[in-house]
């Protein structure tokens, strides 16, 4: 299978503070990959770097094409949807306006309308709240909205930053189930950053472990799950 994303020797810094020191990883088209690591390891920064939201050095290839150094909006237009941490809700707009914004770069009215129905199908709760100000939605609903907004782009690759953060376990399970469905049915590749390593490894096909800005371990989700060090430090055995 072809690689949808290849990252080599990726460096990133916020001002003088260097956060990534040569990250290397790749993911195959149609798979779910997770980046694991402790707080401050550089997981979120990696996602932001892929989207051109921080200054980077190194090479990022998306479907064989260099995207490093490009503007965020241009990267998005190539089919990468980023579900940021904090969800990035447009709080003063309605739920449906948020979703329509997700399809902002797409042409074709009918396709957008049918996609609205499609994401409402995944998250019926959003349909109930379609005219409601998005800022008044609960945390779980806002996370669903963020995922839905990303889906409205019809992305080839989704970047999900801590989708489980701050959500009740039941809702997390529901959300991850839908992510699995989307991946299986629509062949959307996903790169998931999670602190909840157990959940992420259940969802993912591949995993990379990041420590202080470097990849220190990689393998299939099952391999990583059975690694002693990972079990001790991240899975709480």
């Amino acid at each position: 299978m072809a690689a949808i994303l290849e990252v080599s020797n990726l460096h990133a810094a916020y001002g003088p503070t260097r956060v990534l020191h040569g990250i290397e990883f790749a993911m195959e088209d149609g798979t779910i990959t997770t980046l694991l690591g402790a707080n401050g390891a550089g997981k979120t920064t990696t996602l932001r770097a892929l989207c051109g939201m921080v200054k980077t050095q190194g090479e990022v290839k998306f479907a064989g094409e260099r995207i490093d150094g490009k503007a965020t909006e241009d990267i998005v237009r190539k089919g990468i949807a980023h579900v940021p941490d904090g969800r990035g809700t447009f709080v003063n707009l309605t739920t449906e306006e948020n979703l329509r914004l997700g399809a902002y770069t797409r042409r074709g009215r009918d396709a957008v309308e049918s996609d609205l129905e499609r994401v409402y199908g995944y998250f019926p709760r959003l349909q109930e709240r379609r005219e409601q100000q998005a800022g008044t939605l609960s945390g779980g609903e806002q996370q669903m909205l963020a995922v839905s907004r990303a889906l409205m782009l019809r992305p080839k690759l989704m970047l999900l930053d801590e989708p489980s953060f701050g959500l009740a376990p039941l809702i997390v399970r529901e959300l991850f189930e839908i992510l699995r469905t989307v991946n299986a049915k629509e062949k959307v590749s996903m790169l998931v950053v999670e602190q909840n390593a157990a959940m992420a490894l259940d969802l993912a096909d591949h995993a990379y472990l990041i420590e202080t800005g470097r990849v220190v371990l990689s393998g299939t989700a099952d391999q990583i799950k059975s690694n002693d060090a990972v079990q001790r430090s991240y899975l709480g055995y």
């Binding site: 965020t72 909006e73 998005v76 940021p84 809700t89 447009f90 707009l93 329509r100 902002y104 782009l153």
Partner: peptide, 22 residues
């Protein structure tokens, strides 16, 4: 859609970029 995009850009520029708004 353009009006909506302008409102979005004014409210939350970072998120607006993430949906492809210039």
């Amino acid at each position: 859609p353009l009006g909506l995009a302008m409102r979005a850009a004014a409210q939350n520029p970072e998120s607006a970029r993430l949906v492809g708004i210039r």
